[in-house]
């Protein structure tokens, strides 16, 4: 039995938007599962449906064996949910926020003290006990919410963009925390817009317009990219012109500028002569051209593009 199981899960909003459109998903116990997708893809809605705080308009979902509609409160005892926005009280201190959650879960006395100390240490917030939630940095707020969501040692963690708006150092620390929880056996579903984060998951699902268009391990997803990724270097002044020219090239699936290089997804390496010809016709000097291993991002862009066409 999967830890999370959905069948034809649908959420339609008034006004006709279908935020989740027939989702079939199974997440196994102990898995670290990533959901990626552009804004508005339905990631948040999916997590809310799993957290039993939103009713589906179709299909079913079970979390830790409980139905999210009929046994919503049982689901809530098993999960730790981290909303996309800061969900704790800005006027309460770090310690008070944690105490409140302990109050809810009935953690008392020595057990409570130990748990709070442990989580503050885990989240690196020990020196900020007295600081108000609203006065924490974005990264510390995220860690505080995670710590709060962990008070009752949930079997399932549902994290909605836990590192969005967080500096790179805090992001890394946050992922170290997730790795630790993952090795402790917690099932984690994490929504993220960052592809490098997706790479760290056991499996990743790509959501697009309410559907999960692919779902596999990062390595398998990258292998799905049919062509090759070529890194093209041109003089800095010619970057924009080069990008335009490459876009017009037949057999090019996507073009993306990264600093002084242009990555293009092409159907195969045989595109090379045409590419050189196009750049030469524009009077652009080709400095370097070499195949590079595909990134997650490129795999997803390809998949979304190929769906659109």
């Amino acid at each position: 039995m999967s830890m999370i199981h959905t069948e034809a899960l649908v959420r339609r909003f008034r006004g006709g938007v279908i935020a989740v459109d027939g989702l079939d998903l199974d997440v196994e116990e102990g898995e670290l599962f990533g959901i990626v997708g552009p804004d508005g893809a339905g990631k948040t809605t999916t997590l809310r449906l799993l957290a039993a705080i939103m009713k589906p308009t179709g299909g079913i979902a079970t979390v830790a064996g409980y139905d999210t509609v009929r046994e919503a409160e049982a689901v809530k005892r098993e999960i730790g949910y981290m909303p996309q926005q800061f969900g704790l009280y800005p006027d309460l201190s770090v310690e008070e926020n944690l105490n409140f959650v302990c109050d809810i879960f009935g953690l008392e006395g020595e057990e409570r003290r130990r748990r709070i100390d442990e989580l503050l240490g885990f989240a690196g917030l020990s020196e900020f006990r007295k600081r108000r939630g609203g006065h924490l940095s974005g990264g510390m707020q995220k860690k505080l919410v995670l710590a709060s969501a962990l008070i009752h040692k949930p079997r399932v963690l549902l994290l909605d963009e836990p590192t969005t708006g967080v500096d790179p150092v805090a992001r890394r620390q946050f992922w170290e925390m997730l790795s630790e929880l993952h090795s402790g056996g917690t099932t984690i579903v994490v929504c993220t817009p960052y592809m490098d984060e997706a790479e760290r998951c056991n499996r990743v699902g790509l959501m697009y317009e309410g559907r999960m268009i692919v779902c596999d391990t990062p390595a398998a997803l990258k292998r799905m990219l049919p062509g090759v990724v070529l890194a093209v270097s041109v003089p800095p002044r010619a970057m924009i012109d080069a990008e335009q020219a490459l876009r017009r090239l037949p057999g090019v699936l996507d073009v993306q500028a990264y600093g002084d290089r242009i990555h293009l997804i092409a159907s195969g390496p045989e595109i090379r002569p045409e590419l050189e010809a196009v750049l030469a016709a524009e009077g652009i000097k080709l400095l370097d051209l070499r195949p590079v291993p595909p990134r997650m991002e490129e795999a997803f862009i390809y998949m979304i593009r190929s769906r659109g066409s």
Partner: peptide
């Protein structure tokens, strides 16, 4: 935005 966290608790 705190209601979302609160309603997700038991």
């Amino acid at each position: 935005g705190t209601l979302e966290f609160l309603v997700a608790t038991p």
